[in-house]
């Protein structure tokens, strides 16, 4: 039986210096003060690429975006509750921009452009660590495999 899922799109957004953008969640939100990548859930009938551009614009004000390629998919239950209505599959993409200026929405309080290694260390989020590693592999920045989940799903070429 086919499932029905919410679909989220997320971006590893790279600037012209090869740094990637992390943003810090507001203290009044779920997972307060966590550093995360940019992204959100798709609206009905919205294409993943349109949704990605909309989310990047809403969360950072950045409009000049090149979507390079997808990196992987992820699977979560929102609010940590295993119910069909909370089930979400996400797609993470590698994106590029020439803009470094960021205008945050009220969902976030801080942003940082970081070397991918530093970004990897800053986040506590296992899924985000995994996309950063896949991004680094795509860029030829590392050949190491660090994470169990990563080894499970991907073969390092």
């Amino acid at each position: 039986m086919k499932g029905k899922f919410m679909v989220a799109v997320a971006a590893i957004l790279e600037n012209h210096r090869g740094e990637i953008l992390l943003i810090k969640r507001s203290s009044h939100m779920e997972y307060p003060d966590c550093w995360e990548d940019i992204g959100g859930r798709l609206e009905q009938s919205e294409s993943p690429e349109d949704g990605l551009r909309r989310e990047i614009y809403e969360e950072t004000g950045i409009e000049d975006i090149e979507i390079v390629k997808p990196l992987t998919m992820f699977h979560v239950f929102r609010h940590n509750e295993k119910k069909a209505e909370n089930e979400l599959i996400g797609l993470s993409f590698w994106c590029k921009t020439n803009t470094s200026e960021v205008k945050l929405s009220d969902e976030h309080t801080e942003f940082k452009w970081l070397h991918p290694d530093t970004a990897f260390d800053l986040t506590d989020h296992p899924a985000l660590k995994r996309y950063i590693l896949l991004y680094m592999l795509e860029k030829g920045l590392t050949k190491k495999r660090f994470l169990h989940e990563f080894e499970e799903n991907f073969y390092n070429v």
Binding site: V7, Q44, S45, S47, L91, L134, N153, Y155
Partner: peptide, 23 residues
């Protein structure tokens, strides 16, 4: 062995209840 993700696609028909996204 999974080498890497290649392509995201979507297929939307008239009725949004058939909206499909894939990787």
């Amino acid at each position: 062995l999974v080498i890497k993700a290649l392509d995201v696609f979507h297929w939307y028909q008239e009725d949004p209840k058939w909206d499909m996204i894939g990787l």
